[in-house]
């Protein structure tokens, strides 16, 4: 049985309850009081101390509403021509996305880890054994989503555990439990895929053809990752959410690179031998 997340960004209200619940349950330190100054998002990104991060995406593509418009009618999805050619783009204008470890099917961090500290646990989640990790930091640049991060004060790398401890006790992860709009759903991956498919279809029917599911083998796996166990329903191109369009599995190139190096070693060895013979 594989468990995972489905994060439906269309119903996220940016309350950050998931960030707080995650910090509390996992006893993660605060990030300080730094202000970014260019957005309302002062957490900025996932890190070794922040395993859930709510991105605040402001999408100002559409014009603002002006003039005498019946906002109630608009909210109830009454389609009519608006003055000055303006459009109301409720979902695209002000979007939140609660980011988290993607729990890749073929996880690059797990393949990179030289100590075997990063494993797949019995819930098929990607889990770092903190008692094994020696802090080499090689998993960090391997992650195609910038999730796993070294914590300098501790030395080791950390990321979302998908609340392994809570799952063992039959509880859902803290972030999913705290989410007031059910934007974060936790469950079996297959079940979540069914929910996602339904929701994307619903969004398409309601006039949002841009809605799609991120983390499927088509999006998160053509480079060998094989999809993600935490998926996201997005309303824009992945880059808007700071996600790559087509991540790849770096370790796919190791065999080829090793063969190339072996060929080079043979050539260079032969050349040196030739030079030494005179």
């Amino acid at each position: 049985m594989a468990t995972g997340f489905l994060t439906d960004t269309t119903v996220c209200i940016g309350c950050k309850a998931c960030e707080v619940a995650c910090k509390q349950w996992n006893q993660l330190p605060a990030d300080g009081y730094e202000l970014t100054g260019d957005s309302y998002d002062n957490t900025k990104q996932l890190s070794g101390d922040t395993w859930r991060h709510v991105a605040f995406i402001e999408n100002p593509k559409k014009k603002r509403l002006t003039g005498d418009v019946d906002l109630v009618a608009l909210a109830e999805d009454v389609k009519e021509d608006l003055p000055n050619g303006a459009e109301l783009d409720g979902l695209g204008r002000w979007t939140f996305m609660s980011d988290v470890c993607k729990h890749c099917v073929e996880a690059p961090c797990q393949q990179a880890c030289p100590t075997g500290a990063i494993i797949r646990n019995e819930f098929d989640n990607v889990y770092i054994q903190p008692d094994v990790c020696n802090g080499c930091g090689y998993c960090v640049p391997a992650c195609p989503y910038g999730v796993i991060t070294s914590v300098p004060e501790d030395g080791r790398a950390f990321k979302c555990t998908l609340c392994y401890d809570r799952q063992i006790d039959g509880l859902e992860p803290a972030c999913a439990k705290a989410c007031p709009t059910n934007s974060i759903m936790f469950g079996e991956v297959e079940e979540l895929e069914r929910v996602a498919e339904e929701r994307v279809k619903q969004l398409h029917d309601r006039g949002y053809p841009q809605a799609f599911l991120y983390g499927t083998p088509e999006v998160g796996g053509t480079g060998g990752i094989g999809g993600n166990h935490s998926k996201f329903i997005l309303m824009d191109v992945p880059e808007t959410y700071n996600l790559p369009e087509n991540p790849f599995l770096p370790q796919d190139k190791v065999a080829g690179a090793t063969v190339a190096s072996a060929v080079a070693a043979t050539v260079i060895g032969a050349v040196v031998a030739w030079a030494f013979r005179g």
Binding site: T36, D38, S39, D41, K44, Q45, A55, I57, E58, N59, P60, K61, G137, Y138, V140, P141, C143, P144, Y145, G146, V147, I148, T149, S150, P152, D236, V237, E239, T240, Y241, N242, L243, P244
Partner: peptide, 19 residues
């Protein structure tokens, strides 16, 4: 906002560098 466009998220790196 000069940092804000649809191609990235406020210029925040999408991947993490090695330490």
């Amino acid at each position: 906002d000069p940092k804000r466009d649809d191609k990235n998220y406020y210029g925040i790196p999408p991947i993490k560098r090695a330490h």
